[in-house]
């Protein structure tokens, strides 16, 4: 099982409370968590990355336990080795493109100076057509370029999985199309498992080998493209499983 997630978490904000109660399992390399905003998609992604601690349950990635409440396991975000693409990219505004991409590669207490080269960083600068702007600050880039920088920064250290939070929402329509194709090709090239959360049906179309539909913090339905889920697992979830 590539992804095995079972999390429960209650959040309180003033008089309102929100309960996330989600069980999902998948062996697909491309899974999409789909649902309206406020359904708990981002919370789920944050829990996988270690930025939010669930109250109960477990999170396993390709057999590796990242969190297990009963066993008392809760790996720090630093130890989870996942790549995270934030919705508005969260590029470091004080560092240039090359420093941003190389950020996770250096372990010191200070940022390496501008112009320090790593082979892997140079490779991704070339692959994403960013060489000419390697010394520019994120503020000076276009939306598509920013996303490429964020993507390069997330994959340069070869994470075990890539988590994508509404990766195309901040882009205009034509660019969205291009970046979807780029990401899809990249995933196939690297064979890296991805979890993508979105409210855009077009993302589901392209990345949804296994789609989990979320509503009010709960699993509403799931469907697989090739129906490679064993029937027993689908039944165990107690939800509708639809084959395309």
């Amino acid at each position: 099982m590539l992804f095995d997630i079972d999390i429960r978490k209650t959040l309180q904000a003033g008089s309102r409370s929100f309960a996330l109660n989600l069980q999902l399992q998948s062996s697909s390399q491309r899974i999409v968590i789909y649902g309206p905003s406020g359904a708990g998609k981002s919370l789920t992604l944050k829990a996988v990355a270690g930025l939010l601690r669930p109250e109960h349950g477990h999170i396993r990635l390709n057999g590796r336990t990242l969190f297990d409440q009963r066993a008392g396991v809760n790996l720090a975000p630093q130890a989870r080795q996942v790549g995270y693409l934030f919705q508005d990219y969260a590029l470091f505004p004080h560092l240039d493109v090359r420093q941003n991409i190389a950020f996770g590669l250096s372990r010191g207490w200070l940022n390496p100076r501008t112009g320090v080269r790593h082979d892997a960083v140079e490779y991704w600068l070339r692959a994403f057509g960013l060489e000419t702007m390697a010394h520019q600050l994120p503020d000076e880039l276009s939306g598509g370029q920013r996303q490429r920088v964020a993507l390069a920064r997330a994959i340069v250290a070869r994470p075990r999985a890539l988590l994508l939070d509404e990766p195309f929402a901040a882009l205009d329509l034509s660019l969205r199309h291009t970046m979807r194709r780029e990401l899809s090709d990249l995933q196939q090239h690297l064979q890296i498992p991805i979890v993508l959360i979105t409210h855009d049906p077009q993302d589901v179309e392209i990345f949804g080998d296994h789609v989990f539909q979320l509503r009010d913090g709960r699993l509403d339905a799931q469907e697989t493209a090739a129906c490679h889920l064993p029937a027993s697992e689908a039944l165990a979830c107690g939800n509708t499983t639809i084959c395309r």
Binding site: G50, Q78, Q81, Y84, A154
Partner: peptide
Amino acid sequence: DGQLEQAARVLGTS
């Protein structure tokens, strides 16, 4: 922005 700190932690920075 706290998200920048989160991004750095996910990238493995202590």
